[in-house]
């Protein structure tokens, strides 16, 4: 698995300059735009916390989701159909779990770099209230896995990339907007709240927010962790079946 992970790191080395810039610039712009810009109109912050500080953990979780989702969609389709990287790997002693696990590990790594960059950008704004903020990293790791694994399963099942765009339209965008990133889920009508609570993103947001603000989360920590772990494990199991069907035929 390390050899596969290593391969992906080498591919990353070729693009990291460009991606590193956007990894830092995008959080900075979001923090400035939403945190300071929109925050200016939010009187008294949210629950006694300045809007900027309240929104940063949500933005971190949402960034983790977006990186994880992106890296698990078009690249996976390409690894099967266009560049056919997996086919090349399958011809070597590397096993199915190495191919899938090594690629997933890389996606999680990429999402983590996004979280780290965001923490660094948020630090000078005083948005991190506690050393607990560091626990955002393991939370992001789990969150990235919880998104990437099921999306690997999805991307390895669809026949054309137009299905991938659907995923962004009907999952990523609604989650970014309504899963507690920009405003508390309690502001939603009761019927819609459950959709937000069911989304993996909300669990990541609540945990991250508890971490950076050094305050207790809205829901139980073990509950959050278990829920995300379920998405990760379930996604991995399905992705493994899909990968096997496509690579061992």
């Amino acid at each position: 698995m390390t050899a596969v992970f290593e391969f992906w790191l080498v591919t990353y080395k070729r693009v990291w300059r460009g991606s590193a810039l956007s990894t830092f610039v995008l959080p900075l712009l979001t923090v400035l735009g939403f945190g300071l810009g929109v925050g200016d109109y939010v009187d008294g912050g949210v629950g006694g916390v300045p809007y900027l500080d309240w929104i940063v953990p949500g933005l971190i979780a949402s960034t983790v989701m977006q990186v994880a989702m992106f890296e698990s969609t078009w690249p996976v389709l390409s690894n099967f159909n266009w560049v056919r990287t997996y086919e090349g790997q399958a011809a070597t002693p590397v096993r199915l779990d190495d191919i899938l696990g090594g690629n997933l590990a890389y996606v999680v790594f990429r999402a983590l770099t996004g979280a780290v960059a965001f923490l660094l950008v948020a630090l000078p704004f005083g948005a991190l209230h506690s050393w607990w903020a560091l626990t955002v990293l393991p939370v992001s790791l789990l969150l990235a896995f919880a998104f990437a694994a099921p999306v690997f399963a999805y991307s390895s099942s669809v026949t054309s990339d137009s299905y991938l765009a659907l995923l962004f339209r009907f999952a990523v965008i609604p989650m970014s907007l309504f899963a507690g990133v920009f405003f508390p889920v309690e502001s939603l009508p009761v019927g819609l709240r459950w959709l937000a609570y069911a989304s993996p993103l909300w669990h990541g947001v609540d945990l991250s927010r508890a971490a950076t603000l050094g305050a207790p989360p809205e829901w139980s920590i073990p509950g959050h962790l278990l829920y995300l772990a379920l998405w990760a494990a379930g996604g991995y199991a399905i992705a493994r079946v899909r990968f096997k069907k496509r690579l061992v035929i």
Binding site: A3, V4, E6, F7, V10, T11, R14, V15, V83, R84, T85, E87, G88, Q89, T92, P93, V94
Partner: peptide, 21 residues
């Protein structure tokens, strides 16, 4: 061919070699 188009000629060989330990 299922070479990686983004990697160099040499990297395509060295990364592949790693799959064989």
């Amino acid at each position: 061919d299922n070479l990686d188009p983004e990697l160099t000629v040499q990297e395509n060989l060295t990364t592949y070699a790693r799959y064989f330990g």
